[in-house]
Design a protein around this nucleic acid. Structure first.
Lengths: 345, 345
DNA sequence: CTGTTAGCGCTTTCAA
DNA sequence: TTGAAAGCGCTAACAG
């Protein structure tokens, strides 16, 4: 304890306490803590000394009441168990903290909670919101009405203009499918995500369109819920339904991993007998047992962009909506018969 | 829009606005929103009607200023990329939200950030803190001095009494090692976590103690950083150093998974030639390519306990410190030669 | 550069 | 049951 801050247990020191101890006015204390405020270096030192003695820190809550800035950004995530989202959350959290903003986390077990969460968001006067959860257009509109900056992560609004960052699902999927076609895969199948997943549907639609144009209409499709187990189940379903496919396109990595395990359980060798590709580029996709061929989302670039856009909008709420779409990076793993291809186009 | 709330863009409605519209005093509005306050049902209805028309919600920030309760709990997590923590975070977040508390998330890239984070915590007047990050005793003491309730998750304080929940590392590890010994494993090796990880060291110490007593002193040990890559590297190191072990005890699942892949890359069959065990019970440990034998932490029970303890201490700050230790559950996967053993004891 | 003063939006006595 | 009034701890004009 020796030279630790003196302090009556419990009651925390206020700026008045510090002012009294330093022999200055309360506003001098306030100014001492505001960078660039007009205060004599000498007074400031006295104040700071008193502050540390009392263990004083300006109260962010009280400050927010008057500055209209809480320093808090809310993050909405639908399901943290998705394996892709923890990576996103870690990046967001890191970068926000570097920019001196705090994260109020809302993880939704299901979509119906959104309204309840929005209520909380209004009450806490957050400076802005990054949402990796599905929002209806009506919900998005509320942000506009209340003047709370919003950036969507990996989703987009249907009819309302709204700032967003995302990874080019269609482009990435087309790259994968083109490669698969080029080396002569012939019996395709798709493991899709839930129908209400925008990115999932984009990926599937892009794959299908390309396949159709290449003379593969009516590709068999099974729907999972983005989980490992559902990936396994989808693969089993596809194998049961007809002749084994020689290329399976999965809407995300985790299902692709489940699909690989299920295929192997059916004594199919990956990629010799069956190619399997995913999407996202999560860590386990790189594990030696899988070495998944996939499209890696540039998570860090995307999160940084999201935060930059949000910060801009916090400073200038009337900024026009903008969508930033990043290309994913093709990761040539070992789960698909695709040539390493340097001079590829 | 039709019957949506009327509202001048940007400036949010205050209790005064509502009061005026409802033709009551501002304090009547306040009371209407406080459950169990003395207010005539009829007035309350008028107020509520006005409130919805204006899209009014009591401002949590302003309320906190006077009630001394922010409704916010801070969660500290060291590294979200650990795969075990997202599961914990998801549970914590879920349960806190059910109890009408918000989560302020602090994810630390490294231990040196702790002090910076604590500063923020004091400023935001959080009602309490759950820490799954390492705190020094001096840091823990600050919580006591400031009267901020703290519950440690999977760690414990050295010399300061402090509320905590954890999983019985030693007990779990002993169960694993006993089984391995019983079936005659003879050449053990350990893949440990970083030296500054308390749980990691507990697990390793328990395993070593038991092995020593069983006539296996000086078990070779390699240190990883809890990541897949480091698990792989450790296994390679162990294989390089001497005769291949027939049982490898890993301080967590992710390293065990890395170790399995590395062992297989060396053409060792798991578990026939080498048994590998982990700790935690994360989702990928159940994947068909691994089916890891491990100890599963009862995450939901632990998180619920942590929150219950925190809530108690928020209501009664002087509550005595308590440690709750939960037993892990042995998961018999297929990564170790251990009999299914029903009548085991 | 410094102190005085007026709030931010709310809850909570205290009388009526 | 209700309204008036006094703050919670702070920042931001405004004079001095």
């Amino acid at each position: 304890m020796g030279n630790g801050p003196i302090q009556n247990r419990k009651r925390r020191a206020t700026s008045y306490d510090v002012a009294r101890l330093a022999g200055v006015s309360q506003s001098a204390v306030s100014r001492s803590f505001k960078p660039g405020a007009s205060i004599a270096p000498e007074t400031r030192d006295r104040v700071m000394a008193a502050a540390t003695r009392l263990g004083y820190q300006p109260d962010a809550i009280a400050r927010g009441l008057i500055t209209k800035r809480s320093g808090i950004v809310a993050i909405l995530i639908s399901n943290l168990t998705n394996l892709y989202y923890p990576e996103v959350l870690a990046e967001l959290s890191q970068e926000l903290s570097a920019r001196d903003m705090r994260v109020l986390l809302f993880s939704l077990a299901n979509e119906s909670e959104v309204d309840r969460v929005l209520d909380q968001i209004w009450r806490y006067r957050v400076d802005g919101v990054i949402s990796a959860a599905r929002l209806t257009d009506a919900q998005i509109r509320q942000f506009g009405e209340r003047g709370v900056p919003l950036v969507l992560y990996n989703r987009a609004a249907e009819t309302v203009p709204c700032a967003s960052v995302s990874c080019d699902s269609a482009g990435g999927e087309r790259e994968l499918v083109t490669r698969l076609l080029d080396v002569g895969h012939a019996r395709f199948a798709i493991v899709a995500g839930p129908e209400d997943s925008t990115v999932g549907e984009e990926r599937v639609a892009a794959a299908r369109a390309l396949l159709e144009r290449a003379g593969h209409p009516d590709v068999p499709l099974a729907r999972g819920r983005y989980s490992y187990e559902s990936g396994e189940a989808c693969m089993r379903e596809l194998l049961r339904q007809g002749p084994a496919p020689d290329a399976v396109i999965c809407a995300n990595d985790v299902m692709a991993i489940g699909a690989m395990d299920a295929a192997r359980a059916h004594d199919l060798r990956v990629p010799e007998q069956i190619s399997i590709v995913g999407f996202d580029g999560v860590a386990p996709a790189r594990w030696a047992s899988y070495r998944l061929t996939t499209i890696r989302q540039p998570v860090r670039r995307m999160t940084r962009a999201a935060i930059a856009m949000l910060a801009e909008r916090i400073d200038n709420p009337d900024l026009i909506a903008e969508r930033r779409v990043f290309s994913g990076e093709l990761i040539l793993g070992a789960s698909a018969r695709i040539p390493a291809a340097q001079d590829y186009r």
